[in-house]
Amino acid sequence: MRLIRGLTNLQGLAGNPRSPLARGCVATIGNFDGVHLGHKTIIDQVRDKAAELNVPSVVVIFEPQPREFFQGEEAPPRLMPFRQKFEALLAEGVDVVLCIQFNERFRSYSAMDFIEEILIRGLGVHHLVVGDDFRFGCDRAGDFNLLEQVGDERGFTVENTHTVMVDGERVSSTRVRNLLNVNGLEQAEVLLGHRYRIHGRVVYGRQLGRTIGAPTANILLHQMPALQGVYVVRARTDAGEWYDGAANIGLRPTVDGKRPSLEVHLFDFAGTLYGQHLEVVFRHGLRDEVKFDSIDELKQQIARDFEQARRWLAENPLPAGEDGF
Rank of each mutant, 00 (worst) to 15 (best):
M1L: 08
M1Y: 10
L3I: 15
G6H: 11
N9P: 08
G12H: 11
P17W: 06
R18W: 13
A22P: 07
F32V: 12
F32M: 07
D33C: 04
D33S: 11
H36K: 08
T41H: 10
D44L: 08
D48F: 06
K49S: 05
A50F: 06
A51W: 09
V55Y: 07
V55G: 09
V59E: 02
I61Y: 02
E63M: 02
P64V: 13
P64M: 14
G72Q: 11
G72A: 10
A75F: 01
F86I: 15
L89V: 01
G93F: 11
R107L: 14
S108D: 15
S110P: 12
A111V: 07
F114G: 01
E117G: 11
E117F: 13
L119P: 11
R121S: 14
G122Y: 08
H126Q: 10
L128H: 15
L128D: 09
V129P: 15
D132V: 11
R135V: 13
R135G: 01
D143Y: 04
N145D: 13
L146V: 06
N160K: 15
N160T: 10
T174I: 06
R177H: 11
N178C: 09
N181P: 08
N181T: 04
N183R: 14
E189W: 07
E189I: 00
V190D: 06
V190F: 08
G193L: 00
G193T: 01
G193E: 00
R195N: 03
H199G: 06
H199V: 00
R201K: 12
V202W: 10
G205S: 04
G205D: 02
R206E: 06
Q207S: 09
T211R: 15
T211D: 03
G213I: 00
T216S: 07
T216Y: 01
V230H: 01
V230Q: 00
V232Q: 03
V232K: 06
V232Y: 03
V232C: 12
V233M: 00
R236D: 03
T237A: 02
E241L: 13
D244S: 04
D244Y: 14
I249R: 05
G250Y: 00
R252K: 13
P253R: 03
T254G: 01
V255E: 07
P260K: 12
L262G: 03
L262W: 02
E263N: 00
V264L: 01
F267M: 02
F269Y: 15
G275F: 13
V281F: 06
H284C: 10
R287H: 11
D288V: 14
F292M: 04
S294K: 12
S294P: 04
K299V: 05
Q300T: 14
A303P: 09
D305P: 01
F306D: 05
F306C: 12
F306K: 15
E307M: 02
A309M: 06
A309G: 06
R310H: 00
N316R: 05
L318G: 04
L318W: 10
P319Q: 03
G324W: 08
G324S: 13
